[in-house]
Amino acid sequence: MNRWTPRLLAACAGLWSMTGALAQQPPSRAMLEGLFPKGAPVCFARYYDAAHLKRHPAQSVTSVRLMRGFQQVRGDAERNPADAITIELIVTYRDSGARRFLGDAGCGPSLDNQITCYSSSCDGGSFPVKVEDADTILIGGAQGRSRFSVSGGCGDDGPGRSLGRSADDTVFRLTRMPISACR
């Protein structure tokens, strides 16, 4: 997170607030609040094992963690409840071991009555979230890879990395886990 991130998050939150007001609490707002209850840390994660990666040689992502920890819960408590819910996405890749690439995002209801998480980094992209059941979500684009920057975005000197990096980095099924599993 750089010094601009809180301001960008606030700007995103404001935009979400406007979107929410226009849409007059669509069902996806309830879905969002069910997924991320107010004041509660949340972790959805997926760690791909060697067998899965062997079957999917075109998949570069080895783990995905969608986390709403203390920092995000505190930040949201200080904002308008109708604003976006902030999360962080931690991604590891086949060619960089356990090195964590991280993207901050604000999630809210989108006009197609789904949940979309927008990067808090300028032009950092977005990814859709589909709720499969109470403990399972699908993130990423069914119609292609999601461009969501977790490194190398504007003002970031790190290597360019996106959630949808390789041909098989399309949809990720994450399951609810204890918050410690998102470390």
């Binding site: 107010k38 840390p41 920890g69 203390f70």
Partner: peptide, 23 residues
């Protein structure tokens, strides 16, 4: 590390040590 948000204590943790590429 961690603190009160929305009226209750929320624990947190920070990883210290090793290299970024190894857990």
């Amino acid at each position: 590390i961690g603190g009160v948000a929305s009226g209750r204590f929320i624990p947190d943790a920070i990883g210290v040590g090793g290299t970024c590429a190894l857990d």
